[in-house]
């Protein structure tokens, strides 16, 4: 949960006036948000509202057309790409920041040529330069935590979607990230597998991790999030405390959205 006094805690993520266009199609039209340390933010909205794009801009998987991203107060440096847009000015900086933000994808994106254990220790060893022994020891703890200890030697192709997503969460935790980014983590799962993944994410939220979560699971968002952001057609139309937002939505669009998904 977020610290009682929001103003006192550090801004883990700060997004300022973010715009993103794909060709002539403007997907994000000036979005600003901040995630304080320990805060859980859930981004909701209809399909095409720009929620995934917003999340992917935070770790530069998508390059913002304009606007600023700050991670722990450090702005990601941008420069002109010579075609009227911009691109990251310092690839090294982007890589360093990416190792502090762990992303969990809708389609898991586990590396299929490695077993689960190797998936989890890959980044600690080959990006963070940790020793193999250290990485293995921590991976053991994490796989136990997501309930996949016995599957450590299995290849992703042999696992259910729920197991793959839990392994992907272990891979994310292995880098000891400052912020966890979840991009619709249960949207590709069969209904009966959603619960096991949500319960892992819920535990992480309750232990005070900073998280930004794009989701369609409204009940879950309401339970774990400190702040809900409702994105509609590329702008934040409403944000605030989950109870207030769900029980007393102000905008028409949010009212319509809530009634359509519940």
């Amino acid at each position: 949960m977020a610290p009682a006094n929001r103003e006192d805690s550090v801004k883990a993520i700060e997004v300022i006036d973010l715009h993103k266009s794909f060709d002539s199609d403007e997907v994000l039209k000036g979005v600003s948000l901040e995630a304080r340390q320990g805060e859980v933010i859930a981004i909701i909205g209809g399909s095409g509202s720009g929620k995934s794009t917003l999340l992917r801009c935070i770790n530069m998987l998508e390059t913002p057309s304009s606007g600023t991203i700050k991670v722990n107060g450090e702005a990601i440096e941008m420069k002109s790409d010579g075609r009227g847009g911009q691109k990251p000015a310092n690839r090294q900086q982007v890589r360093r920041i990416r190792t502090r933000l762990a992303m969990v994808f809708q389609n898991f994106n586990l590396w299929q040529h490695m077993n689960l254990l190797d998936n989890v220790i890959e980044v600690p060893i080959h990006v963070l330069g940790r020793s193999r022994a250290e990485a293995l020891e921590y991976a053991d703890t994490l796989l136990k935590r997501v309930g996949l200890s016995e599957k450590r030697a299995a290849y992703p192709a042999f696992l259910s979607g729920g197991q793959q997503q839990r392994a992907a969460i272990a891979r994310a935790l292995a880098i000891q990230p400052e912020v966890l980014l979840f991009d619709e983590p249960t949207s590709a799962l069969d209904p009966e597998l959603i619960g096991e993944v949500l319960s892992v994410i819920g535990d992480l939220a309750r232990e005070g991790r900073t998280m930004i979560l794009v989701t369609h699971e409204m009940k879950f968002a309401r339970d774990v999030a400190d702040t809900i952001i409702f994105l509609n057609e590329g702008i934040i139309e409403e944000e605030g405390d989950p109870k207030a937002l769900f029980d007393a939505p102000k905008s028409e669009n949010l009212k319509r959205f809530i009634s359509s998904v519940t």
């Binding site: 998987l61 890589r95 586990l110 080959h126």
Partner: peptide, 13 residues
């Protein structure tokens, strides 16, 4: 699959 390469980039490789 592009997603596997994207994951690698997203983790700072």
């Amino acid at each position: 699959p592009a997603g596997e390469l994207e994951a690698a980039h997203a983790y700072g490789m």
